[in-house]
Amino acid sequence: MQKSFLFAVVSLCFISSPLLSDDGWGSLKGNIVVEGAVPAISKEKIDKDQASCLSDKEAPNDDNLLVGAGGELKDAFIMMYRKGSDPIPAIHPSYEEAKKKPVVLDNQDCRFVPHAVFVQTGQTLELRNSDDVGHNCHIITFNNEENVNLAKKDSVNITFSDADKTPGNVVCDIHKWMDAIILVRDEPYAAITKADGTFEIKNIPAGTWKFQFWHKKTGFMKKLDVPNYKVGKIKADIEVTIKDGETLDLGKLTLPATSIKKK
């Protein structure tokens, strides 16, 4: 049995190639809102380099869970969900240009700015240090690892070659409270919610795709309520059909506060 399927593998190596879409492009947008009492936000414990890191003399809030007054959830990831055998989506030409621009991850006042970044494979990620103290930028995802030393006012460019299924962590090992989230994908179809909880992914090839929702404090948002869609129990995915020239507005997606992990 084993021999036969190994033989099969040999015979069918490297099948899939990118499919080009002729059917045009559409967009996906929405707004994620937390419903219920959000856990209290804790202060970071600044126990090192207070001179540079406590610029406004007050310990900053933990930025892993930023919820607006109306429950708007910041830094949630919306990303395309593909199984290993699913086709690779076509890439809209506008993304080719955008990919040439580096994504910046800055260290400001001993915080990562922005807190969540999305970068494509092959795209340049500029790690920048605007502080007066040294940092390191330690990126660990399932498939990638980088650990770069950043002297003060210095910057380093890196690229990734492997895509990840889930976002990974960025930490500074010197300043323990510093962390950020990074997602590395081959395709550009992912978004991060803004402070008002909104997101938009433009120029998705028309067709049926799966998208999933993720946040650091919940993991995959399995409890997310997407009007008119059924959210997958395991991967928190919804199946949407993107039509040419249209923007699919998912509306207000509500997440019960109980699904947010305390830590």
Binding site: N136, E145, E146, N147, V148, N149, L150, A151, D154, V156
Partner: peptide, 14 residues
């Protein structure tokens, strides 16, 4: 190069 799996970073700027 840094040390893989640990906080010891690589130093590309040196």
């Amino acid at each position: 190069n840094g040390i893989e799996g640990t906080p010891m970073p690589s130093s590309p700027t040196l």
